[in-house]
Design a protein around this nucleic acid. Structure first.
Length: 587
RNA sequence: GGGCGUGUAGCACAGCUGGAUAAUGCAUCGGCCUCCUAAGCCGAAGAUCGCGGGUUCGAAUCCUGCCACGCCCGCCA
């Protein structure tokens, strides 16, 4: 709890000094208490035991006795060798309601470029791909909540084999060809027949079959190879045909993402760095490096083993025919990205770890910084790995429909009074928020198994739980305005009452006091799941407060309780936006 | 074979820059709607923190060996 720590650290240091111990460790040792009933900050006294040749228990007692009084401190206890300090709830309330604490710790607003998703535009989004998009977008939102200036960027893979296959298929196959080839597969979901990503992926899949099994697979492979080659050499006409092939697919994917509240500020095409000469220049620079090597056929690589890379140390950046590789273009892209920001974050699947190492080391070799990377592990289905080929996929579009339908069912039961229209709006918000939250709330590096029952859980521990707490606060605000329309204006900073506060209120104040600490950590360490956990705790605290403190009692408004409720409401709302949960005002 | 990651209650998951009784949700059992939305609240039960060593006043957390699972080790993207 930084707001308390910054206030009383001097006091603790003075007390420790008075015992004759150097207090330089206090800054680090004075830490949040683990259990709420221990207090807000605690100082383990074990490290001082040797120097003072006293028991930690006695040391804690003596520090306690040596501590001066402070308005921020409710009580100090010495327990089992720990010095526990509890913040005074009234002091906390005063600080929080004065409004000058929020984001107080934020001295470092940065310009951050976050690249995420960047999926090949060759088919609809499935849940596996969505982990990247949801994590990335949440990171974008949380950095914005923190006060950073953020650019969310999608790197469009507009050259290379995957797009070439799609372009070739659209050019050379009829709808009948495609459906004939895919006759043994599951037919496309009729609901999405007009959506280009679902449509065109059929062409892509059919072409993949032909490439592998068809009689003309060799000639097809050759044709596609020529397209790839042309694109890698910056052939405008080919690149143009690629674009008309993938753009509608990309648009379809973005439509799906839009439903989840995910949007991008900029799309950067891979081919740009080929056509503008950056890649050629880069390869020239790399060729002059000390660690450059040349293979028999003229291909070039860097020996990154000399820079600490383990395992396979040769990193090829140039083919024998002189063309670039994906990673080479990625390096050119990164060098450009560094001209756009002072903080760079990439969201990548764990399969990209080696490549990220190669790119990072090469950037350092060139005198650039390496980007920060948030890696995530892939989403599996209970039946095993997701695979489009075996039809073992969950499309995001289907998942969102299912989530929406499930939310409608729940609403029919709980709120039969609502109009169909209102229900649809709420169901969409509840469904999409629940899906996002389900994915955000687990650590990115942890394997994630997608389960319908979890994604559609609307109970405690889910997005709807947080949403529900927020709507309670909204409902109270509406009622207060009904009772007294001018109340909001007249009671900006009510006096903090001089009486013992109910448990629920104290819990809520402490949760609110800790918000910035948590957000700072989440943004610094790229761990959105910790913020998801925080919002759950804040919601729980609000619900306890709601239980203990009647804001409206017999038609009268308690100004202090209402102010606390309002602070919780705005904190919840901003936090929900930070996670991409829709802050409904009623549900 | 090498590199990286993961292993915590029946299930899912938090905690991992070492600190006191390992947090939370689901499932299980019990209580709370004549009062601000019960998608809620209160309580019970449930954990040799993968296994073995080590460092330390103190280890889920650090080091090390082993086991299991995932990902990677293309002049593919």
């Amino acid at each position: 709890m930084e707001i308390l720590k910054s206030e009383i650290q001097d006091l603790v240091e003075a007390a420790v000094e008075s015992l004759g111990v150097n207090s330089s460790l206090i800054e680090r040792m004075l830490q949040p208490a683990r259990e709420a009933d221990q207090g807000d900050l605690s100082l383990p006294c074990f490290p001082f035991a040797k120097a003072l040749s006293m028991s930690p228990v006695a040391i804690a007692e003596q520090i306690k006795d040596a501590m001066g009084e402070h308005a921020a401190i409710d009580e100090v206890n010495a327990v089992n060798g720990y010095l526990n300090i509890r913040a005074d709830p009234a002091w906390l309330a005063g600080r929080l309601l004065s409004g000058d604490v929020r984001h107080a710790a934020n001295g470092s607003r940065r310009e951050v470029l976050i690249e995420h998703t960047s999926a090949n535009p060759n088919g609809p989004f499935h849940v596996g791909r969505a982990r990247n998009a949801i994590l990335g977008d949440t990171l974008v939102r949380l950095h914005r909540l923190w006060g950073d200036t953020v650019t969310a960027e999608y790197y469009v893979d507009d050259m290379g084999k995957q797009v070439a296959v799609l372009a070739w298929a659209l050019e050379n196959m009829s709808a009948d060809d495609v459906e004939g080839l895919l006759s043994e597969r599951e037919p496309a979901n009729p609901q999405w027949v007009d959506k280009a990503d679902h449509q065109r992926v059929r062409w892509y899949q059919a072409a993949q079959l032909l490439r592998k099994e068809g009689e003309q697979s060799e000639s097809i492979e050759k044709a596609i190879g020529e397209l790839v080659h042309a694109s890698e050499h910056g052939d405008e006409e080919v690149l143009q045909s690629f674009q008309s092939a993938y753009q509608p697919v990309l648009d379809g994917m973005l439509e799906t993402l839009g439903r989840l509240g995910i949007a991008f500020d900029r799309f950067t095409k891979e081919s740009v760095f080929v056509t503008n000469g950056d890649v050629a220049n880069l390869m020239e620079t790399l060729g002059s490096l000390e660690i450059n090597g040349v293979a028999d056929n003229g291909a070039q690589f860097l020996d990154l083993g000399q820079r600490g890379l383990k395992g396979k140390t040769e990193f090829f950046y140039r083919r024998g025919d002189g063309s670039s590789l994906y990673a080479t273009r990625d390096i050119a892209y990164h060098r450009w990205k560094w001209t756009q920001c002072n903080e760079l974050i990439n969201v990548l699947g764990e399969d990209h770890k080696l490549q990220a190492q190669q790119v990072g080391l090469t950037l350092e070799e060139l005198g650039d910084r390496r980007p920060e990377v948030m890696f995530y592990s892939f989403i599996k289905l209970p039946e095993g790995k997701m695979s489009t080929r075996r039809g073992n996929v969950v499309f995001m579009d289907d998942l969102l429909e299912e989530a929406h339908a499930h939310a409608v069912e729940v609403l029919k039961e709980r709120r039969p009074d609502l109009s169909a229209e209102a229900m649809a709006t709420i169901a969409e918000a509840v469904g999409t928020s629940a899906v996002r939250f389900n994915i955000i709330s687990v650590s990115p590096e942890k394997g994630f198994t997608f389960r319908w029952e979890d994604a559609l859980s609307f109970e405690a521990g889910s997005a709807p739980f947080i949403m529900y707490s927020h709507t309670r606060a909204c409902s109270i605000q509406r009622k207060v305005v009904e009772v007294d329309a001018a109340f909001l204006e007249n009671n900006r900073t009510p006096a903090v009452p001089d009486e013992t506060m109910p448990d629920g209120l104290v819990q809520l104040l402490r949760m609110l006091a800790v918000h910035d600490d948590r957000l700072a950590k989440v943004v610094r360490e790229h761990r959105p799941n910790l913020y998801a956990e925080y919002l759950l705790q804040l919601s729980t605290a609000y619900n306890s407060f709601y239980r203990d403190c009647y804001i409206l009692d017999e038609g009268k408004v308690d100004p202090f309780y209402f102010a606390v409720s309002e602070l919780a409401r705005t904190t919840l709302k901003e936090g929900m936006i930070g996670l991409g949960i829709v802050p409904l005002e009623t549900m």
